[in-house]
Design a protein around this nucleic acid. Structure first.
Lengths: 346, 346
DNA sequence: GTTAGCACTCTCTTATGGAGAGTGCTAAAA
DNA sequence: TTTTAGCACTCTCCATAAGAGAGTGCTAAC
């Protein structure tokens, strides 16, 4: 473990580097952060810290920059959470005043926008995951001859619809019968759990008393139920990275933006936070995916009816203002959960 | 008007510049494009073309580059439409094989993806505009106590839904009555035409025989009808610009990407093509909006049931491969219209 | 254990001097 | 009158060099 003086020096270096983005030298530390020792002593300590893996040196005669291990120590033990400014709080609170918020998706859109604006990084959110919710109600609405609208309502108040084309005409009462059977058999199941097995069981029962039109209809319906498992992605502030010196290199910027274009990758990254209760901070090489090994990700989850259903977070360079971002993400996630229950229960 | 030799030279310069992105000199033209005159003569002609506004010179001792006026002349009179390669055709046709295409939005998503991949520019599409379609059917589905699901079906087979929370409980038969009145009064109207006037007219009739709960319910419904007018935007290949030398300057790239983040601006830009029957090419300063005055946009529309309902296109530098992109966009838009009618009528 | 002094290293910026590409002009050729 | 060859001139781009600046590591003294 690091002794107190080493910790102080490490903290000073990281704090400074987060602000300046320049390698930090011993003189700077001695001058700006009065620890009461001379640059020479600091140099010795820095040399130790480098050997222990907390710092790195871009080249021989440069100052030090934090390694991922250094950031990890900083995040776990050293940083002091920054209080939100009144302005930041106002911005987050104001999300609820935005007139277009009529559902969770509008809320997410506004929230990611605010998140990127006040952090000045790129924000990402994963929409409510249908497969994590349970089926509450399924309704079949006749539209015209062979067209039927399937509406799914889940226990978290989410609604999805799908327009189906059946191979033959089906009467309204037939539709109602199918609805009833499905509701009877499947409601209460998590949508992700509606497997082929379950489906073929339901199918068997229906065969007992119905025509083959009926049979085809339900098969089609059930097949579609399963497709509805990919969730929407919200993204904001992608161009914020151009303010950061680490992305002044066009190839770095390109690489970063390529990540943001890869929806699947982003979903995977965001899903990581589903396990944890609170905020998840992933620093550089700690990321599972090669593409973002020089980025840090800070995510948290949001809940509907007490159940974790999606996540939201920030992507940026490893030199991230962790203290600020963590505070903001935490506050914003609390605010969001409140707003969600307000939206769903008003 | 330009004489034939000037046209030949202009075409050669633009063709060359589109490939190389370097100012084109008289010697290059004489060597690569055998027009049968010496560099000196070409220089004189180039000087004329510059004076007439078709060419520009980055600095005294550089070759010439096309001006926006030059590109306009090229696009209108000089360029030969390039035939699609078998591979390009295959890529476009294969859109229909993608398994997830169950509706217009999935189709648009796949199509923009393919468009950006084969053009190597950024592709954009505007989703079906609800306000341009007419209301066919409105259904109110009871979900639980005060919750009601409103489903809108339009004449183009588009469906939208919205979960409403009513201030008081409403019985199922009341809901049905409201549905009937709304369908009676509003179906057949373009959704964009459902104005406050129309709404208050409907409201008056309802007041005649219904309670105030009823009144509030319908007001709420109708207010929501109008919100449903902003349409979805599809974007793909934003990072393609990093392959282009004109965006090697970080500020240029940033500016371009900022445009793509401004959804409203993109919608406006794409809406421009709604007037025209065919493909619309907008070159650099021809653009209405300051932000994209150094970009070119090539768009076309797609139809549902013969009615223009959305648009799709490509955004790139003014030095765009117009000939290639126009061919691709045209073919792709035809293909799309076919697929749409297949999706809606299968 | 801590500090001052100093030589050394590496980057970054600025200046310099061709090389290269292309033009415009002039005068000769067609 | 139109076209072309020749040539001086201009501007960019690139490589090289030099010097400033920042910071280190080491040694020896405190």
């Amino acid at each position: 473990m690091l002794d107190e003086r080493k910790q102080k020096i490490l903290k000073a270096i990281i704090d400074d580097f987060i602000i300046t983005a320049e390698p930090v030298g011993s003189r700077t530390i001695a001058r700006k952060y009065n620890i009461g020792i001379s640059p020479a002593t600091i140099r010795n300590e820095m040399s130790d810290l480098e050997e222990m893996g907390y710092l790195e040196q871009p080249h021989t005669s440069a100052g030090r920059i934090p390694s991922d291990k250094g950031y990890r120590f900083y995040v776990d033990f050293l940083m002091k959470l920054r209080k939100l400014t009144p302005e930041e709080i106002k911005n987050i609170k104001d999300v609820s005043l935005y007139k277009k918020i009529n559902g969770i998706e509008e809320l997410l859109e506004q929230t990611t926008k605010v998140l990127s604006q006040i952090t000045r990084y790129t924000s990402v959110a994963l929409g409510p995951q249908l497969k994590k919710t349970t089926l509450k109600h399924l309704q079949l609405v006749p539209v015209e001859n062979k067209r039927v609208l399937m509406v799914i309502v889940t226990n978290s108040g989410l609604v999805e619809h799908k327009l189906l084309s059946l191979p033959k005409n089906v009467t309204e009462s037939d539709l109602e019968r199918v609805s009833n059977i499905i509701n009877d058999k499947l409601s209460g199941l998590a949508i992700g759990d509606i497997s082929d097995d379950v489906i073929s069981n339901v199918k068997k029962e229906i065969i007992g008393f119905s025509s083959d039109v009926f049979d085809m209809a339900i098969e089609f319906l059930l097949k579609n139920l399963q497709i509805y498992t990919d969730s929407k992605l919200f993204l904001y502030g992608t161009t914020n990275i151009f303010n950061l010196p680490e992305f002044r290199d066009i190839e770095k910027a390109r690489n970063f933006l390529s990540i943001l274009e890869d929806k699947e990758l982003l979903c995977e990254i965001l899903s990581n936070s589903f396990m944890s209760k609170d905020i998840v901070i992933t620093i550089g090489s700690e990321n599972k995916y090669q593409e973002i090994k020089n980025c840090s990700v800070i995510t948290t989850t949001y809940k509907i009816n007490g159940k974790t259903i999606g996540s939201i977070g920030v992507v940026g360079p490893t030199r991230m203002e962790y203290s600020k971002v963590v505070s903001i993400v935490r506050f914003l996630s609390e605010n969001m959960s409140q707003l969600i229950s307000k939206i769903l229960n008003n």
